[in-house]
């Protein structure tokens, strides 16, 4: 009987395999693209004697920041999803599902598009992309939507209805974005549209300097929440009963989730379904809902999945790229479908 929960692999072995996987996928992501740079050549570039000067440029200016962004984004958006699933006690919660990414998009749209729509000033989208102002607007947007959905969900006990509420908030923010687009400069609209496809390559070093520390810090913070999140799994009253300040914990989770989801969306554009799907993969992989293991497990799985999605979106060997948002949706949506079909009763999916 006791063997039911025995791991096929020991947890430490999973961690070793996970880190190994991240390193190899990281190298693969650096190597593949429109130009293939062999691993041998990667080492040459790092040690300072590349065979081709252009490869060195591609490596340092594009591939390296993009691969680092992939890891940060994957880990960040997945942990944001996990936090929301525990917060809402809903296995289908996630930044894209509950309209949080839409909120961030609204923040971005307001920051970028309103300047032309209202003041008639044309902003440089690429310039705006790295600025603190944009990040703050995106965070404010996601915080606003998350708070509204949480407020609405306090009155609704049914999990699926909460998702519909999230969807409605998504539609509402989408409508506002459309209105802003309607009054904006065509070139700016095109830039904005390309941004909504989602891309990791838009993140240059200057932007990574902002995004890196913010994401790293919030990821570290979320590692500290495992105790409170475990208690929340039992429900609010039980959490209160073991001395957890539920209101404060909820606020902390909302803040970190909005900062992570907002920041990532500001830089990479909305990334669909990774936040919902990866926590479930981690639960499956690590066979636990204990957040002490699940939070780092979700970070690791998120980094792996995002690196894979990025490699796929680069279409190795071809001269074209696919929108990242579509690749992640093609991966994430079936996972969610599988979860719904497997657990006819959704509540069992935790």
């Amino acid at each position: 009987m006791a063997a039911i929960n025995s791991y096929i692999l020991k947890p430490w072995l999973v961690v070793v395999i996970g880190i190994g996987l991240i390193i190899s996928l990281f190298l693969l992501d650096l190597s593949l693209g429109s130009v293939k740079i062999s691993v041998e050549e990667l080492l040459n570039i790092i040690s300072g004697n590349p065979s081709k000067k252009s490869w060195e440029y591609i490596f340092f200016s594009f591939r390296l920041p993009k691969a680092i962004t992939a890891i940060l984004t994957g880990a960040g958006i997945s942990v944001a999803g996990l936090q929301m699933q525990t917060l809402f006690k809903n296995p289908l919660a996630g930044p894209s599902v509950l309209g949080i990414s839409h909120g961030a998009s609204l923040g971005v749209a307001v920051f970028v598009l309103s300047s032309t729509a209202i003041f008639g000033v044309t902003t440089n989208f690429q310039e705006a992309l790295g600025s603190w102002g944009l990040v703050l607007f995106a965070i404010a947007g996601s915080f606003l939507v998350l708070l509204s959905v949480l407020f609405a969900s306090a009155r609704i006990s049914d999990g699926v209805t909460v998702l519909i509420v999230g969807l409605m908030f998504g539609f509402m923010t989408g409508a506002v974005v459309s209105i802003l687009q309607y009054f904006s400069d065509p070139e700016l609209i095109q830039n904005f549209l390309v941004w909504t496809f989602g891309s990791l390559s838009g993140v240059a070093w200057s932007q990574l300097r902002v995004m890196g520390p913010v994401i790293a810090l919030t990821l570290l913070l979320s590692l500290l929440y495992s105790k409170q999140m475990n208690a929340l799994l039992l429900g609010e009253n039980y959490a209160t009963g073991v001395g957890i300040n539920v209101a404060r914990t909820r606020l902390k989770l909302i803040l970190t989730t909005s900062v992570v989801a907002g920041t990532i969306t500001a830089f990479t554009g909305p990334i669909a379904f990774i936040g919902v799907a990866v926590p479930h993969l981690a639960r499956l992989l690590f066979r636990t809902s204990n957040h002490k293991i699940l939070i780092p497990g979700t970070m690791m799985s998120g980094a792996v999945i995002m690196l894979i999605c990025d490699i796929v979106s680069q279409v190795p060997g071809a001269q074209t790229t696919l929108p990242l948002n579509s690749v992640t949706a093609l991966f994430g949506a079936p996972v969610i479908l599988a979860i719904i079909i497997k657990n006819k009763k959704m509540k069992g999916a935790f």
Partner: peptide, 26 residues
């Protein structure tokens, strides 16, 4: 209150009872 916690073991649940006495990392 109904407790719905998929992959939490009995040990995981009972150790939550020790939360008032443990540090930040439980």
């Amino acid at each position: 209150d109904k407790v719905n916690v998929g992959a939490m073991t009995v040990m995981d649940i009972v150790s939550i009872g020790r939360y008032p006495y443990t540090n930040y990392f439980a």
